[in-house]
Amino acid sequence: MFEARLAEGGILKKVLDAIKELLNEASFDCSEAGLQLQAMDNSHVSLVSLNLRAEGFENYRCDRNMSMGMNLASLVKIMKCSANDDVLTIKAQDNADVVTFVFESKNGDRVSDFDMKLMNLDQEHLGIPETDYACVIKMPSNEFAKIVRDLSQFGESIAIACSKQGVKFSSTGDIGTGNIKLAQNSSADSDDKVVVDLQEPVTLTFASRYLNSFAKAAGLSEKVTLSMSPDVPLVVEFKVATSDNDYGYIRYYLAPKIED
């Protein structure tokens, strides 16, 4: 038996918005630790790794590990039937072929439930090695989203260059070139702070389209962390958190473009 009660059901809506462009279907792995999802997009260029900790749920029960394969477009349809402040309960029997979503309005006078058929998905898990990254950039997530959106107008690729001076995002295309430079600013307590932890300078180039999809997670967290090392995938991490609860994280991995 699996049952998880999420006080703020809207969190799952936001999580879905942050992965639905990249994945058509995915398995949610349930264990005592929480709900995990790890899946690559069809072209194996990006990977989504979602971790929702058991402690983030109001109630969480998972008697045995199970994997629930879901069509994300179907899940979006079901989540559309809920209000953002509904309490959400997800439940499934062991070996069930359906998962049930129950939405309760805050004042308790409206309860709806929806069963969704589960899918058998071939799971191909990737082993992601622990990496010490050459640069780690922490910045406001809405700023990241705007930069990626602005530069995507120029070209299919965005170069991210991280050095002692700060971070430079660049893109070149038919209409010309755009560069956006962010200096490290250490203004204490500022939410707009950009912090760079640098071991060595790194420049890597990535597909704009994927960065734009990742930026859809900006609604989940005020901060985003970009981790880069030469010739390895970029990691873009958003905490899934509200002011009073730490739900976990969503991480995106993106293979860099390779110079011929």
Binding site: S43, H44, H125, P233, Y253, A255, K257
Partner: peptide, 14 residues
């Protein structure tokens, strides 16, 4: 000119 890398070449399939 650049080509898009793939994750399979960086990570191991388990």
């Amino acid at each position: 000119k650049s080509t898009q890398g793939r994750l399979d070449s960086f990570f191991t399939v388990t």
